[in-house]
Computed example of a mutant assay.
Amino acid sequence: MRDAPPAVTALNEGGASPFVLVCEHASNFIPAGYASLGLPAAELERHIAYDIGAADLARRLSVLLDAPLFLAGYSRLLIDLNRPWAASSSIPEISEATPIPGNVGIDAAERARRQAAWFTPFHDRVAGFLAGRPGAVVIGVHSFTPVYLGEARPWHAGILYGHATRFGRALVRALAADPALVVGDNEPYRIELEYDYTVPVHGDAAGRDAVLLEVRQDLLGDDAGRAAWAHRLAAALPRARG
């Protein structure tokens, strides 16, 4: 068993970029005491456990932009760092169509323990850093599945935003300048107060521009794909900010 990671790993905190990268679904790690939440090992390699390719994409972006980066250390199945604490999907009993046995029927004490162990340390670290960075732009780095519940998704990437409409739409245009790309404008998801945390809390509520980047997982399946998307996004982000 590998050593238990910290709840959050911060890289390049002294980076000069205005962009601050946050990867809430970076890891599929589940401590041994949770017995894989009752799931076979193969299930933990799926999107239900983490955003495939997102951590490596975020690390590459951090280098290209000289941007600070905050990476989560634990699986979203234990507690989802991009969900409000009260959301039913915070600790999911079903993810996509897969039951999560180790999350069924847990009590308030266990919910509070997971919040204290993983959710609060991650977001306190991000919030504390942002407090000392006037003008920071928050960028959540995510990936999404090519097919969800039987429906194919046509987008190569999506930009999700709430209040940051100028920046979000400018980023969509910057990526869509490549005619080979299908870029979602608040697709394949939307930012919703009931179901999202990073953009509403670290961005909108604090008066900062904030977006989530979503890149389709099959485009991040190898080093070449992740490198290509890192360079594409590293060029588009400064253009969108203006």
Rank of each mutant, 00 (worst) to 15 (best):
A157T: 14
L37Y: 07
P238N: 04
I191A: 13
G168L: 07
R76L: 09
G225A: 13
A87L: 00
D107N: 15
E110N: 06
V137P: 09
V138D: 11
Y195G: 04
G162L: 09
S88K: 14
S27V: 06
P121W: 00
A152V: 10
L220K: 04
L21E: 07
A180T: 10
L39Q: 08
L130M: 11
A4S: 14
S75K: 12
G15I: 10
P134R: 01
P68W: 03
A210G: 11
I91R: 01
C23V: 02
R232E: 07
V183M: 06
I139A: 09
P18D: 07
D209C: 01
V138E: 08
D204R: 04
T9P: 02
A54D: 06
R76N: 10
A234G: 06
R133N: 04
V201Y: 13
D218T: 01
D196G: 07
A58M: 07
D218W: 03
A67R: 13
F29N: 04
V215Y: 05
E96Q: 08
G33D: 12
R46F: 04
S90I: 00
G38E: 01
P154C: 09
H231E: 15
S62C: 04
L57R: 08
Y34Q: 13
P18Y: 12
A86R: 12
A210C: 11
V182L: 15
A58D: 05
I159Y: 01
V211A: 06
E192Q: 12
L69K: 12
G53Q: 05
A164L: 02
